[in-house]
Design a protein around this nucleic acid. Sequence first.
DNA 1: CGCTTTGTTCGGAACAGTCCGAACGGAATG
DNA 2: CATTCCGTTCGGACTGTTCCGAACAAAGCG
Lengths: 161, 161
Amino acid sequence: MDARERLVADIGQHYERLGLSATAARVLGVLMLEPNGRADAPALVKRLGVAKSSLSVALGTLERYGLVLRFRGPGERRESYQLADDAFEAAFLGKLPALESFLALADRGLALVQPGSPAAYRVERMRAFYAFMLREFPALMRRWHDEAPPAGPDGEARLES
Amino acid sequence: MDARERLVADIGQHYERLGLSATAARVLGVLMLEPNGRADAPALVKRLGVAKSSLSVALGTLERYGLVLRFRGPGERRESYQLADDAFEAAFLGKLPALESFLALADRGLALVQPGSPAAYRVERMRAFYAFMLREFPALMRRWHDEAPPAGPDGEARLES
DNA sequence: CGCTTTGTTCGGAACAGTCCGAACGGAATG
DNA sequence: CATTCCGTTCGGACTGTTCCGAACAAAGCG
């Protein structure tokens, strides 16, 4: 078990802790270290030692989360899977809807709580916090995009989105 | 099932989605709407219809996460549980360590990947993103603390931390 | 000192989620 | 048109988690 193998396993552990299944997490680990960030299903099956059915569902969830893109070259028999360029940002932005629904929850709470009571202040503060985050987070992401290092020498094929 | 009940259930659903157990999530829901944000174990057991053993472990995890504080008044027979004032911020800040470890993972990746390769650029970009977030997020929290509305009329007892 | 109350810990049951092998539908090849 | 290759879906087995009831330790009260 070389260093690369160990790193793949550790990356898997961390993504698993974030709620991904073990297979999906390990797929991410492999793709990150793959030279061109791309692999096909048979390669992943061999690399990870999982059934192709498990791989199928794992890739499905990864695609739904916007972390992995499917790619089929013209006339290509099999399809390749590639890390989305903005996978990490996508993982962050994917949590914004959760913030929105918490905001809505806070609103419902405000309507139920006696105005002026400590509970009202508490819920109002919670509401304000989520509103603040919901406002400031996209701004932060914009700043990141400005300061961000270039995406690379484009030695890899870019996928049309 | 009145509106309050429904709201408690929905808050529970959302916190459950964030990784808390069902019981812990519902405890949070109850405490948020409780007039003074406080309750004791028998009340919670009756309110939620769970065994007190389940409640015990749920409260333990909530306390470890810094979302709930134990409180025993002097000479009080039983102890009360109260929402931490900064529960929502704590929930956010609790994820910073995860960012740090991802940064470390990216460093290990950089050491393994061939310099100049597309993979190197990709991992470098990932590293930069996490570094950016790790730097900017505390700053964002500071700004929140400045702009934040007051904590309330202090009609509730404050806990010594 | 016995009794009650409060909170934790333990063992077993129930459940959700994930994985695997097998079967299936589709598409390109010969 | 038969065959081969891919990817998805399905049923069953397994694992880890959560929950409950019961037993337990600790601390005040009579």
